[in-house]
Amino acid sequence: MNESADTQILSLVQNPTRREEGFRLLLQKYQERLYWHIRRLVLDHEDTNDVLQNVLIKIYRNIQKFEGKAQLYTWLYRIATNESLTFLNKKKKKLAISLDEEVVGLANNLVADEYFDGAQAQIKLQQALLRLPEKQKLVFSLRYFEGLPYEEISKILEISKGGLKASYHHAVKKIEQFFKNS
């Protein structure tokens, strides 16, 4: 992560006269990464678009409160993760469905999604991910897809490094088992 670019973004967004200029830089640097992080959690492009727009507006409204204790992208990922989980929980409650129904529904949606063109193995991987507990799914997604080190994931999810390693290893083993069984 380019920290000097983050420093420049922060100094601009915290200056009332140059706030929009700074926010545009932030979008250029982070909107795509945040999109992919959300997309891997909610899967559907339209849902991702809704969540991402909420996330970006929330960031704009709250960035003046950012104290710089964590790195900027850690703070952004945390907002995106929380919004995605809130969205998924609301959707689950709205549809009043069980975990199994949710897994089957999301997997079917993925196959029918015009914005998904994955090989059979990738569809299976997503189906396996849908069956993981929330924490394991988040840790796996941040490490496997985003390629983040444990230190950063620990800051984003506020979980100890030891706990993260255990969650990641469990997740990998469960996914592999799913492939063997299906």
Partner: peptide, 16 residues
């Protein structure tokens, strides 16, 4: 941990 997943990680995930 899993040679299969390690190989799959190199392939595009399929999201457009």
């Amino acid at each position: 941990l899993s040679p299969l997943l390690a190989k799959m990680r190199q392939e595009p995930a399929g999201f457009i």
